[in-house]
Amino acid sequence: MRDRLFAVVVRWGFVAVTVLLVVYFAATEPNFRDADSIFSMLKYAAPTGIAGLGVMMAMTIGGIDLSVGAAAGFAVSMAAWTMVVGNQVGGVAVGVVLLGGALIGALNALLVVVARIPDLLATLTTMFVIMGLKLIIVDGRSISSRMTLDDGTTAPGRFTEGFLWLDRGEIGPVPVPLILFVLLTIILWFVLEHTRYGRALYAVGANPDAARLVGIRVQLYRTLAYVSCGVLASVAGLLLAARIGQGDVSAGNSLLLDAVAVALVGVSVLGIGRPNAWGTALGAVLIAVMVSGFTMKGLPYYTQDFGKGMVLLVALLLSFTLSRRRTVVTAGSLKA
């Protein structure tokens, strides 16, 4: 009985906390009840959540990607540069950015899979290289519409309406970033849970040697995981760029910690014990609820990181410390 209760707490504890927080904020802050503010809160969670989905993909094969923040920041600047300096339409910018994200992922795969550098170190290196490359391309400056260039002329292009729609657009009452976030969550959930590709990714993460010996092409799936992580990070970057409306050079810097935290929280949230899409999405929502709720409550912004840190700590305790005990309990109760 106690084991069952414990299992329920592990599985639904995080969801319960999220719901309780929502109820509490809704009861005490009239603004929080407002549909618009709920949507804007969830919209705010979208880039973090999507970058978190990227980290989750790297985690399915037992890896990690620390370059997601840099990849998103690179995407912000590249989108701005393509439209403002290159004078292209939004669609071209999106294409350039997604291609760039895939290339960053391919670089990570090259370092981890081919050069056999440990994932933590390889993606840390990629993070530096990509951040540096971005600064070189944009001469260390933020790029805004109609800015003055080095030669004194005005930049030919600007952030197009179509591109800004990525942030400001709504389908019905639902903001576009939120739709994109939910859509990607559903797609990745389906791929991971219901297709052979997802199963193969998890197999590589669970036991790469066994995966190789049952004929799964381990290197291919590792590459796939990093490339999809790069693409998802660049999608997060697109949303950030559309939100800010300019190519802020510092954008994306804070995304890394949030994205990794969200993916880790996602492992434990539903008691699934492995990286998964719904858990990751829920983690992003939980953090967004916390941040916006406590901000409304008047807590200063600089307390946010502490709160996120505590959430992550609880998540890690749940998935590493407590769930290990849980498996022992299950095995014991089976024998009895």
């Binding site: 297709t195 590709y197 040697d209 066994a210």
Partner: peptide, 27 residues
């Protein structure tokens, strides 16, 4: 170390080599 996928069900451990065979369209 080389045979089993820990934390997986018996069914998933059995099916691991046959993912292509066991799937329909789009995997």
């Amino acid at each position: 170390a080389q045979g089993l996928f820990p934390g997986w069900t018996l069914a998933r451990n059995v099916s691991a080599p046959f993912l292509a065979e066991l799937s329909r369209w789009a995997g």
